[in-house]
């Protein structure tokens, strides 16, 4: 499918034979608001076929007619043969245009591209998911996959930091995961509200108190870069090993296939050998200014 981060093996791609710069057309089945600036698109191929299979952590390039194209992580269930799901935040011209899509409208999709979360490596281990803000979206496929194969994994911990209670993503699912799937779900917010009885504080505080008492746990982090840095450092302080921590990086991308030069990150090309990296693989670059 795609390279597992930290490994050099790269499997064949049948899609490479096609032009990776030409999108496949999908149509919008449903668009749903997650919070004031975030929405989720449910897409199906307009040709009636199945969506391209993907691995948790990969992304697509989404094209909207005449406006532009952006990379967005896939946030649906990799095992389901259902629709393609993308949770998108309105942060620019393209995403604002996408927020105005209606069921039946079409959208161009190139992908899936990039590396994925190391779910094979994680089999038999405790899985700690640390998400911040919209960073929960690229990790949702992991949660689908682990909960569907619950017995193959050890303890499952989800630590999620959001800006404010009303901005928490996938609220109903968070409750369900915590209830039904033997998963420790802890949510914290930067700013409380009057009726908020949950945690207030940063996600590193959740890491400090998380039950990371067993060896060999694997941690998957996604969120703003500063949050990922601080989270990784807190996990290291808690005794986790560098080679068991994974992060998902973000940079400007125009092609998604390692050709356009925009996602240069030191020696790395994020769309090609990322976005998911093992922490020790990019540690020297993290926190460096303007890389």
């Amino acid at each position: 499918m795609s390279p597992e981060p930290g490994s050099s093996s790269r499997t064949d791609r049948t899609r490479a034979a096609l032009d990776p710069m030409v999108p496949r057309i999908y149509s919008v089945e449903r668009i749903r608001r997650n919070n004031h600036d975030t929405f989720t698109l449910k897409l199906n191929p307009a040709d009636g076929g199945k969506p391209d299979p993907f691995s948790a952590g990969q992304f697509n390039m989404l094209y909207i007619f005449g406006v532009g194209e952006i990379p967005v992580s896939i946030s649906g269930d990799p095992a389901g043969d259902g629709a393609l799901m993308h949770t998108i935040r309105e942060v620019g011209t393209v995403t604002r245009a996408m927020a105005r899509l209606k069921p039946g409208n079409s959208i161009g999709v190139r992908g899936p591209f990039g590396s994925h979360w190391p779910l094979e490596t994680a089999v038999g281990s405790d899985v700690v998911i640390v998400a911040g803000g919209i960073g929960l979206a690229p990790l949702r496929p992991v949660i689908y996959q682990v909960t569907a194969n619950r017995s193959r994994y050890g303890r499952m911990i989800l630590l999620y930091g959001a800006r404010a209670p009303k901005e928490i993503l996938y609220r109903r699912q968070l409750k369900a995961w915590g209830g039904a799937f033997d998963m420790d779900v802890h949510v914290t917010v930067d700013r409380g509200e009057r009726d908020w009885n949950g945690e207030i504080g940063v996600v590193t505080g959740l890491i400090r108190r998380a039950p990371l008492d067993r060896r060999g746990a694997i941690a998957l982090i996604c969120g703003p870069e500063i949050m990922m840095r601080f989270s990784a450092q807190e996990l290291l302080r808690r005794g986790m090993d560098k080679d068991r921590i994974y992060v998902s990086m973000e940079r400007n991308m125009k092609c998604g296939v390692g050709l356009c030069g925009h996602c240069q990150y030191g020696t790395r090309i994020i769309c090609r050998d990322g976005p998911v990296y093992r922490y020790d693989d990019i540690e020297p670059l993290l926190g460096r200014r303007e890389v």
Binding site: M21, V22, P23, I25, S27, A46, F65, G66, G104, N105, S106, I107, G108
Partner: peptide, 13 residues
């Protein structure tokens, strides 16, 4: 790279 057309709502590339 490509031309896109809107054909009765459906995008054609």
């Amino acid at each position: 790279l490509f031309n896109a057309r809107r054909d009765g709502g459906l995008l054609q590339i």
